[in-house]
Design a protein around this nucleic acid. Structure first.
Length: 867
RNA sequence: UGGCACGUAGCUCAGUGGGAGAGCACCACCUUGACACGGUGGGGGUCGGCGGUUCAAUCCCGCCCGUGCCAACCA
């Protein structure tokens, strides 16, 4: 039924948002999935949560706009398509740029379409008429506009700087794209002879091949051991270049020998040191990771091979003094896992400090709030220590940088429209930059580029800022922070009021699932095994704040059972509604009718409260408890009396309540399980061909008055106790037990006699104030002592054991209460209502203990005489 | 090295400054005209450890242990 329903929703345009709709707007933009492949469970979770929010707010009468789309995912997609080519033994260079990009567009068409299908299969209520792709003409125009404006403001600039370089992808990477991974390496100690022959200085390194690019040896300025050497030169092993011995306080005197080789061309620390001291920068690497001509005899060797050769040659020359095992953290390419080489390269950068400040302020002063709040610390820490962002990439798939270099004067012309002449010298020999932009550049504009920026559209006016962004904590830096910065800069307002950070879904072993890494689970498979609604319910019920989700397939059984339970409850209702006449009224509604209607209101209110706080798991459990624990366990059982009874009025009244409450429950559940709820709702006798989303939640009634609520509570207590007594005695559910009430309870019990008998299978209740028989179980309810009598003397021993245990528990509680009340400090300092409650508890327990022990005595005597 | 989480029933996890909860699993009974993907009842936890604050701590604070994540220029 899922595909049929979804098609019907689309035909009815239920998800389309009109900016001129006068109702209060509620907007959100989808985190655009990468067009690398298909959706995994993390997408299923995030989009289920967003869909629940979107549908919920539609049901609350808001003008909801959920904007969908996909991301071109520059490097990720390029790597995937390159892999595909590699399986045919080809590289992108075999195709050339244009043909390769065409091929990626083909991939995008296939993958993008599959993703949209999956989102729709999940039930996502996106406004598909607003679907966007980050490389659409409109969004590309926004990218260009932003680049040109930031360049004009001096925030985008070119620089020659030490960057992370992936020699396999042959591109620069940002720090975020170069995560550190532990590597078991070796630390080598190498001897650098002094040029004057007066000795040598020893250094340590994990990357011996980099010595080919060394331009100094550094020591700490206050290090007595080396004071005399500063200013002298050392002879670089293998190449024989003379390099200065310099002093810089970045050197740690305690580490190794206290002297460090300086390779400004291939180490971030050394680069900074080189800049301070004006050292020469030598690059020894080709872009593809082989050594270049500066490496002398090692030129053209790959790094790993060069390392071996360098070590062997050092050994030969007697300059390798030894090595030790050394575990350290090495940056790797986020996409292909190749070891990243730091090297100096001329790239486009974005200056971040001035953009970061407003983004920090906006969260500090609460214009944007994270849920849960603790992620704000992560956000602050990163923005407070922000570094320039390398935005250029040596890739082919992405937004080409709108900059043209003049071949005559080398000036860069950056412009909105393709220039025909150099803006500096007027020459017409211009060449556009080959590089594309980091994919996150366009992602950063998503909340406003998708609504038509830089045009001043009606959509931007109404739907920006969006209400909430739902995403994973793994992209707070990559994406959330950058949207905040650019949103504030260009729109002069935050891009979203709330940031909901959803849990990460891990597999059953707790391992992370990730996009282009292979351990992803296809949600479609789970959806076909368990049903989409079951998957959605399970995901929502697991989305608690502050902990990631370990998801095994077994956890989906609960969701499926709940869907089935709902379905069966509806089946029961339909069986009993065959002669339902809409609008027909019978007599007054029963207590049961009024009670369940009130419980529905309470559940709806609690559901709304939970969702407003993004407490999805609470929202799910509120409805679970209502549907299963109240509607099915109590109301339906009680309603059977009227529905299957003789009284036509009572039957009609109960039918009316059943329809109202069931429809209310379906509406409430709709944001979580949209398919089954609409399917059931369409079959209810009051159905008019509309969908649940075309209505709003039922208005709450006047709350059930306290006396009625208490009456219902008493009935539940009595039934529960009778079941418990029978259960504890191990009696079959139908075994005859006699229930005796005090005569004073007659007025309260008699109206519920049928319910009592139906739900406990007891004999007709008797009203009597006679003393309980020796074997009766007793408890207090309905304003007196209720007795449950069982005639089987064989049960005496069991009952004695049960009572002993029961007494033990009560006496322990009594002792605890008594200790508290004897403590003058407690009585004096605790809140009065707490003390009062403790007193009442004490009195109650004392009475209960006395009653139980008295009865226990009687039973023991009876058991003795029976024996 | 620093930061942030997490450590509660066999498992997966909620939760709270005043008598420990859910789902699944387990045990007993029940094939009752919605539902065995069900019903009723039950067993099971010194709430990671040690201190501190408090009349009162599973909850707040500190330290420690364990797990995970993130950020990091110790060659």
């Amino acid at each position: 039924m899922e595909a049929r329903l979804y098609r019907a929703w689309l035909e009815r345009r239920l998800f389309h948002a009109d900016p001129d709709d006068p109702r209060e707007p509620y907007s959100l933009v989808i985190p655009p999935p990468n067009v690398t492949g298909s959706l995994h469970l993390g997408h299923a979770l995030n989009n289920t949560l967003q869909d629940a929010l979107a549908r919920h707010h539609r049901l609350r009468g808001l003008n909801v706009c959920w904007l969908p789309g996909t991301d071109h995912a520059g490097i990720a997609t390029q790597v995937v398509v390159e892999r595909e080519l590699a399986s045919q033994g080809k590289t992108r260079h075999d195709l050339g740029r244009e043909a390769f990009v065409d091929q990626v567009w083909e991939w995008k068409a296939r993958s993008g379409a599959r993703i949209i299908e999956q989102l729709q299969a999940l039930g996502a209520s996106c406004d598909w008429e607003r679907e966007r792709f980050t490389m659409d003409p409109g969004l590309s125009r926004a990218v260009r506009e932003v680049f040109v404006r930031l360049y004009g403001e001096g925030l985008i600039y070119r620089d020659n700087f030490l960057v992370n370089w992936c020699p396999r992808c042959i591109t620069v990477l940002s720090d975020l794209e170069s995560p550190h991974r532990p590597v078991a390496g070796r630390l080598y100690r190498i001897r650098y002879p002094l040029s004057d022959g007066s000795g040598a200085i020893e250094v340590e390194t994990t990357r011996p091949e980099t010595l080919l690019g060394d331009t100094a040896v550094a020591v700490h300025p206050d290090d007595e051991r080396y004071r005399d050497l500063v200013g002298k030169t050392a002879r670089l092993p293998l190449l024989g270049r003379e390099i200065p011995i310099v002093a810089d306080d970045f050197v740690d005197r305690e580490y190794g020998s206290g002297a460090v080789k300086v390779t400004p061309g291939h180490d971030p620390n050394d680069f900074a040191c080189g800049q301070r001291l004006g050292l020469e920068v030598i690059s020894i690497l080709h872009p593809d990771g082989r050594l270049n001509e500066n490496a002398g005899p090692y030129a053209e060797l790959p790094v790993a091979e060069a390392r071996e050769r360098v070590l062997a040659d050092l050994e030969r020359d007697g300059l390798l003094l030894g090595s030790t095992e050394h575990a350290h953290e090495v940056p790797h390419c986020d996409r292909c896992d190749t070891v990243v080489e730091p090297l100096v390269s001329e790239q486009w950068f974005m200056k971040m400090e001035s953009l970061a400040r407003p983004a920090l302020d906006a969260v500090r002063d609460g214009r944007t709030v994270f849920h849960p709040r603790n992620w704000e610390k992560t956000y602050f820490h990163w923005l407070e220590n922000i570094q320039p962002w390398v935005i250029s990439r040596q890739l082919w798939w992405g937004h080409r940088i709108p900059a043209w270099r003049c071949e005559a004067c080398q000036h860069w012309t950056v412009a909105l429209e393709d220039p025909t002449a150099c803006e500096a010298c007027g020459s017409d020999s211009l060449a556009q930059a080959e590089d594309v932009l980091d994919t996150w550049f366009s992602s950063a504009l998503w909340p406003f580029s998708t609504f038509g920026w830089p045009e001043a559209t009606r959509e931007l006016e109404v739907f920006y800022p969006t209400r909430v962004l739902s995403t994973g904590h793994d992209i707070i830096f990559f994406w959330v922070a950058r949207m905040m910065m650019l949103g504030l800069h260009f729109m002069e307002d935050v891009p979203f009021r709330d940031v909901y950070i959803h849990p990460l879904i891990r597999d059953a072993e707790g391992k992370k699932m990730s996009k282009s890494r292979g351990n992803v689970i296809d949600p479609l498979e789970i959806m076909s095994n368990h049903g989409t609604d079951a998957l959605r319910y399970t995901l929502v019920s697991l989305a608690a704040q502050g902990r990631d989700i370990k998801l095994g397939e077994s956890q989906l059984d609960g969701g499926r059972a709940f869907v089935t339970k709902l379905w069966n409850a509806a089946r029961f209702a339909l069986m009993n509604l065959e002669d339902f006449e809409p609008g027909a009224t019978g007599g007054e509604r029963s207590l049961y009718d009024r009670w369940i209607r009130w419980r529905l209101d309470v559940a709806l209110r609690e559901f709304d409260t939970a969702l407003e706080a993004y407490r999805f798991n609470d929202a799910a459990s509120v409805l679970y408890r209502f549907v299963w624990g109240e509607l099915c366990d109590w109301y339906i059982e009680l309603a059977k009396l009227a529905l299957q009874g003789e009284d036509a009025d009572a039957r009609r009244t109960t039918q009316a309540t059943l329809v109202t409450v069931l429809r209310g429950a379906l509406t409430a559940l709709h944001p979580i399980m949209p398919f089954v709820t609409d399917e059931i709702a369409a079959s209810l006798p009051d159905a008019d061909g509309s969908f649940l989303l075309e209505h709003t939640y039922p208005e709450p009634e006047v709350p059930l008055e306290a006396a009625a609520a208490e009456e219902m509570e008493a009935l539940v207590t009595v039934i529960g106790r009778i079941r418990q007594i029978r259960g504890e005695l191990g009696l079959p559910p139908r075994s005859p037990v006699r229930v005796l009430f005090p005569t004073a309870a007659r007025d309260r019990i008699e109206p519920h006699e049928a319910a009592l008998r139906a739900l406990t299978r007891c004999a007709p209740p008797v009203f009597s104030d006679a003393a309980p028989s020796e074997t009766a179980s007793v408890f207090d309810a309905v304003g007196g002592t209720v007795r449950v009598e069982v005639d089987d003397p064989n049960l005496l021993a069991d009952e004695v054991r049960r009572l002993e245990k029961d007494l033990g528990k009560r006496e322990k509680d009594l002792a605890q209460a008594s200790r508290k009340l004897d403590n003058p400090k407690f009585v004096e300092r605790a809140k009065p209502e707490v003390v009062e409650a403790e007193r009442e508890k004490f009195e109650r327990l004392r009475g209960e203990c006395a009653a139980v022990s008295e009865r226990l005595e009687r039973l023991r005597r009876a058991a003795g005489s029976a024996a």
